[in-house]
């Protein structure tokens, strides 16, 4: 097991009380696999992985255990984490337009990683950076190396972000909605790139998205988050074939389909994502669930194993 997350809980202190953005979640990532993380906006996906990276905002704090390669890393100091971040694991973010430093040349933003972590000479760092820009498919990398981020398109910036994240050959790449801010045509290319790099470099990837469609052909397993909790974990194929949680099913049904012709309006799950500061006593999905019954009212369903590789958090025996 490359990454093993146990009882991770992330809280934020705000003016009007505490917000529990991630609520006691457990999951793991095997070396080389691709884990999809799905959920509506606000379900805690980003904060869960920022907690693991040690990158929470100042008002946030995380509890639990996070084992990376067997070593507990949650709560390590910034200095200790700096030996791991960008080296053992990397993270790329949703908005490539603002995630690169607008005041620095791409060359510097890349080579500084190598001189910081591997003490490479300027020449070697440049060479390695150019190799990676080639690898992620930036045409004329040499020429564009000394440019500033604003001289790149959104898709190209995300490629640069990926190249930068891979400089030290991490074992794990966390991609947080890497294509949400991009044109539809570019989205597929970037996703394909991440998948290809994952298998070519034998690197585990976590693909965070609010769109199940993104994960379909790319991930091995998927975990579905709702209101800061994991509500279902399953191999991707099984989830698509037969979702076990009403929320997963709703997500599937609201996926745009290629065979769906334009005249049918898309299904959307009725209602709103839960207010994290006023979660229901029982299941957080209850106001939006057509299957809700008495036990859902006052008991949060545990995430329980339903088969060798499937878990769900729902009081229903079986989803009709």
């Amino acid at each position: 097991m490359l990454l093993d997350v146990q009882n991770l809980t992330t809280r934020f202190h705000t003016h009007d009380g505490e917000v529990c953005a991630v609520n006691n979640i457990n999951f793991s990532v095997e070396a080389g696999e691709c884990l999809g993380v799905v959920g509506e906006s606000g379900s805690g996906k980003t904060q869960a992985f920022l907690s693991i990276m040690g990158l929470l905002a100042k008002n946030g704090s995380a509890d639990g255990q996070v084992y990376f390669d067997g070593r507990q890393i949650l709560g390590l100091s910034g200095n200790e984490l700096n030996n791991l971040r960008g080296v053992e694991f990397s993270m790329i973010f949703q908005d490539p337009m603002t995630s690169l430093n607008p005041f620095m040349r791409i060359s510097r933003q890349m080579t500084e990683v190598l001189s910081e972590h591997q003490g490479l000479s300027e020449k070697d760092a440049v060479k390695r950076s150019l190799d990676l820009l080639d690898l992620v498919g930036i045409p004329e990398a040499k020429k564009r190396f000394s440019m500033y981020p604003h001289e790149f398109s959104g898709g190209m910036r995300q490629r640069v972000m990926i190249a930068m994240a891979l400089l030290c050959e991490p074992k794990l790449l966390i991609a947080d909605e890497p294509t949400t801010a991009l044109d539809v045509t570019v989205q597929a290319q970037i996703l394909e790139l991440i998948a290809r790099l994952g298998s070519e470099l034998n690197m585990a990837t976590v693909l965070i998205t609010h769109d199940l469609g993104v994960i379909a052909g790319l991930s091995d397993r998927v975990m579905v988050m709702y209101g800061g909790r994991i509500v279902e974990k399953a191999p991707v194929r099984d989830l698509f074939k037969q979702p076990q949680h009403p929320y997963s099913k709703g997500l599937l049904e609201s996926m745009p389909r290629v065979d769906d012709s334009n005249n049918k309006s898309l299904y959307t799950i009725p209602g709103q994502p839960p207010d994290l500061q006023a979660l229901p006593l029982g299941c957080a999905f209850i106001p939006r669930c057509e299957h809700a019954f008495a036990p859902c009212e006052n008991q949060v369903p545990d995430l329980v194993k339903i088969s060798s590789d499937r878990f769900k958090a729902c009081h229903l025996e079986e989803l009709p």
Binding site: L55, A57, N82, R85, G86, T98, S99, P102, E112
Partner: peptide
């Protein structure tokens, strides 16, 4: 300091001084 590119710099494992 709250901007995205600073978060990126931290994610790269750069020291706080840099």
């Amino acid at each position: 300091m709250n901007s995205n590119f600073i978060r990126t710099a931290r994610a790269k494992g750069l020291s706080e001084k840099i």
